[in-house]
Write a protein that binds this DNA or RNA. Structure first.
Lengths: 291, 291
DNA sequence: AAACGTACGAAACATATGTTTCGCATCTCT
DNA sequence: AGAGATGCGAAACATATGTTTCGTACGTTT
């Protein structure tokens, strides 16, 4: 992927052919790649002790149109790969055939989804997921809340969780009101609340109620300051960037599934036994199609 | 560097005391910390959809003299991060305790999820998605079927789809039986069926019924030869590889969301108008928390 | 109603930025 | 030695940036 293999390599290979002043600039860039990402062109030129024009000349010499392109390259390198996706996506959207538009949209959706997922498994989030598991394992009951577009993620977790634990409650408001389902919630329980902007009132109310009953909350949400994340025991902040009017809950779903996988892994053979039992039960009900 | 404990914490703790517009800015910063390090203040303000003045006001509100100081803080934070990555990697390879196992599991889940998603947007699938959209656009009614673990994906699509089209029916068996909901299905309709192995009998039955009524089927499933994909008008085969006992429906969900995005993009301004109307209606019901 | 205070965006401001131009050295080749 | 090419920095240019100012709109209090 990518027409530009690596600008760094290009700089090194062309180094000999450059004029002395350009070499000075190139050398500084090679020695201080982060300066390219973080500082301005003029500031870099000053640091390298060359006039600004030398830097622009260097750009054209190595076949880079503009300083922006150069800087972008180094910025995404700094981010350890991710962000360049978005910009490329924007570039691709310029073409104007109808089918092409659809294809490009899907391509850009794909990249966004991958970015969202990557971010959801950043080191910070990983340790929070582990902490979340500990909290769940020690809880008496596990209440799972998610309305509207967040419902799928909540459902997914609840569905899988109940295959190996019987203390999970999906608070979906289907049977009776929200309040009924939360009766008895307390400090020994835990609530997993899923929701992103726009926040659905029910979800926020459920969280507030849990908090008022001293029940710790795990927030799977889109921001550290989302109303769902307020005073949360653990915040799992996942991106919901999307190309459409609708937020993407892909990353949230993925995290919920990952939590299940983690819980099972930590649960060891006992968890697996329970799953086997659950599947047997489903087979009795003739739920699945046998091969 | 040094005396500032962490501006991020400061931002979170002061969040409630900020004015609405400043909250908007603060929130964007919390959600996109790298933007602070890499982009200009005005660019960030644009991205956060606030005037530049709001950002400067935010600076003074949280006790930061100038934007430069703020940016510097985030830049050094960004530069420190890669080191922690490396350190963590080294630590992981040394010891073999429980936490490490969890981290490795999550890392491998992340990779698998990304693979699944990438495959779901392969050129072949992309053109099938476009074909799917055409079929949906020409359908009288759109029936969406998904049971068990596939329910989230079906629900997600139905939920979003109904925001701009009123001919979507989520066949979830909640209200009455499966059969009831499918009454009247015919050749001018379309059914979107989601399901992976193990195939849930209800879903397969629904597909078979649709076919018997000459209703074309869009199959979102795990194999070209899945019982759901039999004689399907269009097969969207997505991978559901996962590290746990449980299939991953992340890619399926992503594809369903992508279909919605595509439909809206193709629908043009009319679709957007309908969405606006739907959101207004939701606002009337006081569904969302206003800012 | 009136007075006050806060919140806010548009515009103004000075400065910094990326790029281009221009003229002057220095080198190269006949 | 002179013509041509090349390398170079100062300055010019248009634009973007960070910050301040100012008028208005809105809500609260008197």
């Amino acid at each position: 992927m990518g027409l530009q293999t690596d600008l760094r390599e290009k700089l090194i290979s062309d180094y000999a052919k450059l004029s002395p002043q350009m070499q000075k600039a190139a050398r500084y860039i090679l020695d201080h790649p982060n300066d390219v990402a973080l500082r301005s062109m003029r500031a870099l030129a000053r640091a390298a002790n060359v006039p600004p024009s030398t830097v622009t000349r260097l750009m054209t010499a190595i076949g880079v149109e503009t300083w922006q392109d150069f800087r972008d390259h180094y910025q995404s390198r700094l981010l350890d790969q991710p962000a360049s996706y978005a910009r490329r996506a924007r570039e691709t959207q310029k073409t104007d055939n109808d089918v092409d538009r659809d294809q490009h949209l899907l391509e850009s959706i794909c990249r966004t989804e991958i970015d969202n997922i990557s971010d959801a498994y950043a080191p910070d989030l990983v340790s929070r997921m582990i902490a979340t598991c500990e909290a769940i394992e020690n809880a008496r009951q596990v209440f799972i809340v998610g309305r509207g577009a967040a419902y799928p993620a909540a459902f997914q977790f609840a569905y899988a969780y109940r295959l190996f634990c019987d203390n999970g409650v999906l608070v979906d408001g289907h049977s009776g009101t929200f309040g009924d389902e939360l009766r008895g919630i307390g400090r020994r329980d835990i609530m997993i609340a899923v929701g992103a902007k726009p926040y659905i009132r029910d979800t926020v109310r459920a969280v507030e109620f849990a908090r008022s009953q001293h029940c710790p909350v795990i927030a799977v949400t889109d921001s550290d300051v989302s109303p769902i994340a307020m005073d949360a025991h653990c915040k799992l902040v996942v991106r919901d960037t999307s190309q459409s009017f609708f937020q993407s809950f892909t990353a949230a779903l993925s995290v919920m599934q990952a939590l299940v996988a983690l819980l099972v892994a930590r649960g060891g053979p006992k968890a697996l036994q329970r799953i086997a039992a659950a599947e047997e039960q489903l087979a009795v009900f003739d739920t699945y199609l046998e091969d």
